[in-house]
Simulated scan of single mutants.
Amino acid sequence: MASGALAKPQMRGLLARRLRFHIVGAFFVAVGVACACKFGVAEQRKKAYADFYRNDDSMKDFEEMRRAGIFQSTK
Rank of each mutant, 00 (worst) to 15 (best):
K60W: 04
V31Y: 13
D51K: 04
F71A: 05
Y49H: 05
A5T: 01
G40A: 10
F28G: 14
R66I: 08
F21R: 11
A42R: 14
C35E: 04
F39S: 03
F62C: 10
V24H: 09
F27G: 14
E63L: 14
V24D: 13
Y53I: 02
E43R: 02
G13C: 00
E63S: 07
Y53S: 05
A30T: 13
R17W: 08
Y53Q: 02
G4T: 01
R18S: 01
R54Q: 02
R12A: 00
R67V: 15
Q72Y: 14
K38T: 05
C37H: 15
V41K: 09
G4H: 03
M59F: 07
N55R: 11
S3W: 01
S3T: 00
V29N: 13
E43M: 06
H22T: 11
K46R: 12
A50P: 06
G13F: 00
M1Y: 09
L19Q: 09
D51G: 07
K38C: 07
H22I: 13
V31G: 11
R17G: 07
A36D: 03
C37E: 13
R45D: 08
T74P: 08
S58F: 01
T74M: 05
F28H: 15
F62G: 03
V33D: 07
Q10W: 02
K75S: 07
G40W: 11
V41N: 07
F39A: 04
G69V: 03
M1N: 04
F27A: 11
G32S: 08
A36I: 07
C35N: 05
M11P: 01
F21Y: 14
F71E: 02
A48L: 01
D57F: 11
V24K: 08
M1R: 06
R66A: 10
F39L: 04
K75Y: 10
Y49S: 04
D51H: 03
M11Y: 05
V31D: 12
K38M: 04
T74C: 10
D51M: 03
P9E: 02
A30Y: 12
K8G: 11
A68R: 06
Y53L: 02
Q44W: 07
K47Y: 03
M59Y: 10
V31N: 13
D51W: 07
A26Y: 15
I23T: 09
K46Y: 10
M1Q: 06
R45A: 14
P9T: 00
Y49M: 10
A42K: 14
F62E: 06
A42S: 13
A30I: 05
V29D: 09
A36K: 04
E64V: 04
L19R: 10
V31R: 15
R18K: 07
